[in-house]
Simulated assay, not measured.
Amino acid sequence: MLANKKGKILDVGAGGGPYAELCKEQGYNYTSQDFCQLDVDLLREGSYHPIDIVCDATTIPVDGFEYDYVLCTEVLEHTVDPALVVKEIARVLKIGGKIFLTVPQLAPGHQRPYWFYGGLTEEWIIRIFRDCGLEIESIGYPYRGPANLAKLCIANLSSNIKNLQKLNGLSVRLLLALPLNLLISISALVSAMLTDSLDSENNLGYGNFVIAIKR
């Protein structure tokens, strides 16, 4: 039995729990947290994973210095005050504990009515993490600027297809828009392949993956 040998990990905003089984298989003592107020149809997994702590992410009812690791993936943009969430994560982390966080920098609207920010910049992350006593070990994203425009176009195409599926009848405007949207998506992808390296300042970055440690 490997459980508890690798430390305690808190999954903040766990939702459908996409990392729950992996964490347990790897021997971590896994705890999930979520406010559990989102319509389950909006969850990628289609339902909530069993949530151990149901609460707001700004006030987690556990002692300070409780966890060795915290996961927080694609959550901050759905909170009214993301800085307070980071502060709470820092509170529950042990000294030397690590946070693994992903957050969009450019994102279309999703999971409404709990969508409060279109994205958070690298500069915001650096400033807030520093103020909360979290030292960033790495920050970045595997995809750069223009490539992410293609992602947004494809996301828009997917949204239009879902809208079409919801209609009882056919929408002429939507049917006409789909081929145009597909053409734009393909064009954006080709453009991305040719110009991606030109976005040296990551002004069009889709998001950030952050690893930080509590000092």
Rank of each mutant, 00 (worst) to 15 (best):
P113C: 07
G145E: 02
R215C: 10
G64H: 03
P61R: 15
G97K: 00
K214C: 06
V86A: 07
G13D: 05
V86K: 05
I213Y: 06
K5L: 13
V54E: 15
L149V: 14
I136H: 04
Y141N: 05
G13K: 07
L183C: 12
F65W: 01
A192G: 07
P104F: 12
V210W: 06
A177Q: 12
L194V: 12
Q26L: 09
W115E: 11
V190T: 12
L176F: 10
N160A: 06
W124Y: 14
A177I: 03
I211T: 15
N29H: 12
G145W: 02
G207T: 03
I213Q: 12
L182R: 13
L164E: 05
W115C: 12
N160W: 11
I51P: 00
V62A: 10
G205E: 09
P108M: 11
H78S: 02
Y206G: 15
I125F: 05
Q37I: 10
I126E: 03
P146V: 02
K166D: 13
S185H: 11
A192H: 00
P61E: 15
R144C: 08
Q37R: 13
F65Q: 01
L183D: 10
G27C: 00
K94S: 01
V190G: 11
L174Y: 01
Q165W: 09
H110I: 09
V62R: 14
A155C: 09
T195N: 12
G64A: 11
N202M: 10
S138L: 10
G133R: 00
L189V: 03
P82N: 02
L176D: 12
G16L: 05
D52H: 09
N29Y: 09
G119Y: 02
I60D: 05
I184P: 07
I51K: 00
V75T: 13
L149D: 10
N202S: 13
L10G: 08
V92E: 04
L157E: 06
D34M: 11
T73E: 06
I161A: 07
I184N: 13
I95E: 00
L157R: 08
L176A: 12
V12S: 05
F35R: 05
L38V: 13
Y69R: 10
V40N: 06
L182E: 10
T102Q: 12
E66T: 14
W115F: 15
V172M: 09
D81F: 01
Y114M: 13
L167T: 07
I186W: 15
D11H: 04
M1Y: 07
P61W: 15
I161N: 02
T102K: 12
Y19N: 09
N29Q: 14
C72N: 08
N4I: 06
Y143N: 05
A20Y: 03
N29S: 14
A90N: 06
T102C: 11
L189T: 08
S200A: 13
K24V: 02
I60L: 09
V75D: 05
I89A: 00
